[in-house]
Design a protein around this nucleic acid. Sequence first.
DNA 1: TCAATATGTTGCCAACGCAACCAAATTGCC
DNA 2: GGCAATTTGGTTGCGTTGGCAACATATTGA
Lengths: 395, 395
Amino acid sequence: MNERAVRPAVRGNSNDHVRRHNLSTILGLVHHGRGMSRSQLTQAMGLNRSTIAALVTELVDRDLVREEDAESTFQVGRPSPMVRPSSTPVGLALNPEIDAITLGVVGLGGEVLTTVRHSLTAPPTAEQAVEITAGMIESLQPALGSAHRITGIGVAVPGLVRERDGLVRLAPHLNWHDEPFAKMLQVATGVPVRAANDARLGGRAESAFGGGRGLRDMIYFNGSPSGIGGGIITGGSPLAGADGYAGELGHTMVNPYGMACHCGAVGCLETEVRRDRLLEVTGLGAEDAAGLATALTASSDAMVEAEVGRQLGYLGVALRNTINLLNPQLIVLGGFLADLMDADPSRLGNLGSNRPLAASRQSVDIRPAELGADLLMIGGAELAFESLIADPAAF
Amino acid sequence: MNERAVRPAVRGNSNDHVRRHNLSTILGLVHHGRGMSRSQLTQAMGLNRSTIAALVTELVDRDLVREEDAESTFQVGRPSPMVRPSSTPVGLALNPEIDAITLGVVGLGGEVLTTVRHSLTAPPTAEQAVEITAGMIESLQPALGSAHRITGIGVAVPGLVRERDGLVRLAPHLNWHDEPFAKMLQVATGVPVRAANDARLGGRAESAFGGGRGLRDMIYFNGSPSGIGGGIITGGSPLAGADGYAGELGHTMVNPYGMACHCGAVGCLETEVRRDRLLEVTGLGAEDAAGLATALTASSDAMVEAEVGRQLGYLGVALRNTINLLNPQLIVLGGFLADLMDADPSRLGNLGSNRPLAASRQSVDIRPAELGADLLMIGGAELAFESLIADPAAF
DNA sequence: TCAATATGTTGCCAACGCAACCAAATTGCC
DNA sequence: GGCAATTTGGTTGCGTTGGCAACATATTGA
């Protein structure tokens, strides 16, 4: 709650601010809870019943939430109507990758309505990605019809993104350097665009709708074919850092005698813990990656066991460091890191020679991710909904 | 139904909260800025002049701030009076150590008014520390007189502290285990007590009044005789983690083939980067520690150079990890880590094989601490003032 | 049937911050 | 020295918001 001198604490009419804050809080609760009864809202916010009623009515009028008949709660008393997200506002989530561009239509409440995948034969330039995306949105328009309203586009970029303005500083696999992607796409589509690192958005998705629901301090580790990234949630909100680059868990030093990383340093987590090596030792191809988890647990091969042990050891170092540094309640492992954990669940449970401080260790749980393929769509939509939820009355 | 008794996770906002928030913001600005003119407050907060006037008047009536004649600004227009922290409210800062207990009286604005040091021949038990502290406060009372009012006590503990309730989980050098120190001291003195890790409080002090003034994302590394700790500020407020244990930078893994740490892990930063080794190679005793900086820079001894290089290398690993993880604007080195940096300033400037990601590296500055001996007194007082600043009208 | 727990609606009150006005104080130009 | 321009302080009345109380109503379970 500490306001800093550098930024105005309050702007404009503060009566408006109260209203805005309350509308925002209700919409946020309904969005992240996928629906709450009025009495739950009243309790959660500590406001008067009549105040909640007035606020909910305004959100209904603005077509941002709708009220449904009460669910049977088997409780004494008059049932409280459910307040659910309206299906009218939708956020678009975009994920440009080397072999495809994926676009999702996501409703409030984090429900993925549609996903469209545009396959590519070569990594797209930023210009191509903008053009293709604009076309995909164009072709979605009839399906969306007038029943939906697009609130924004959230782009999950496999690279470093300056979140302030959506400048892609570096996306090595796409070979993008300093591309003002958010601005380009906004000009092309006329829709507000925000962009962020993909793993960071995955973390937001797991925090909002996955294993981190309701937790204030969690860390998401994402293992992708091209490396390891992460997203940190502290105090209930995503940790961005000065420019939005925070969460680069893949570049934690785990082996001083390890290989040089493409980032210029030595012994980074992502040079030691790699999906391709796991596929290699299990004899799988990149196209069989879905079977990696079963292959790892089923295997009794010594080579496989050794590689799994080696990688889990390095992962443990990174876990220990982050637990000591951030004292999270939960660590969520996504992508192939979840497969790796499944291959020897006890190993990460007691971190052996990588013991975090006992007190911090006691309060943390390490679990695989709950959200699956839709992770980045949900995370991207969080970005797309952000300004709507921050100020529902402005829409 | 009395909702105010409970503290729900998400709170709504009401008119009362607006007032409280605005009073709090003004008092926080005046405290951290050590005084601001009314017009500056108006600009910083974006509120109406008359509103600021009413708020400042209330704070003056409550004897939390005072108004002084305007300073000459050489600007056209009617001069705006300076709003400065009142000298009435004082926070007490306590720092129990193995060889002494230090108690400070600190005014709003972070001004250390008095410091009393009680030397010890043996590390105190928690009970002894409480007793001694109560006596020290008692003997301070006449000096304080009725002109000052104690708002609280903030304890800087060399160990792990659960910030929620001030339980000292482990203070190895004091040999305290699970001591409810804050509660004990509160019962003994009748004054609200909060406790936190010493390095975390050092970070808050540097953030509020040192090199981190006005920055939203910074990290403080503290090198003490007994180890390395740290404090993290993100988004303008201290990062606590689930229980307040966040910031244990001393237990970052920097050398997998290093020594076993007392924490149970191997190769922690604080087992490799140690003040006692620096004193040893420079031929200094523990009592000459103040001369360490000059000894290190003056020395041309190869042994010294090698040890400095070795320790800077390991420190670099920890810096790289935290920069990649948290993308701070500033890293402040305190204690003997500042001496270490001074011995070879260029070394940490370009981190060599410990290169953080270029984008994150560009936005970070690495500097020695600005605050000296009063660091923990100022940091402790921040804790003591916290509830006052959060709700000035309650006092 | 009654008690308990909800919601809906209405009217009133207190509090907040703002706009508008006038007064005051300082700088800079003539 | 005088005057305009500029900036801020002081005071008052206004609009908005949320809290609260009171009463009617809906639903469940004993």
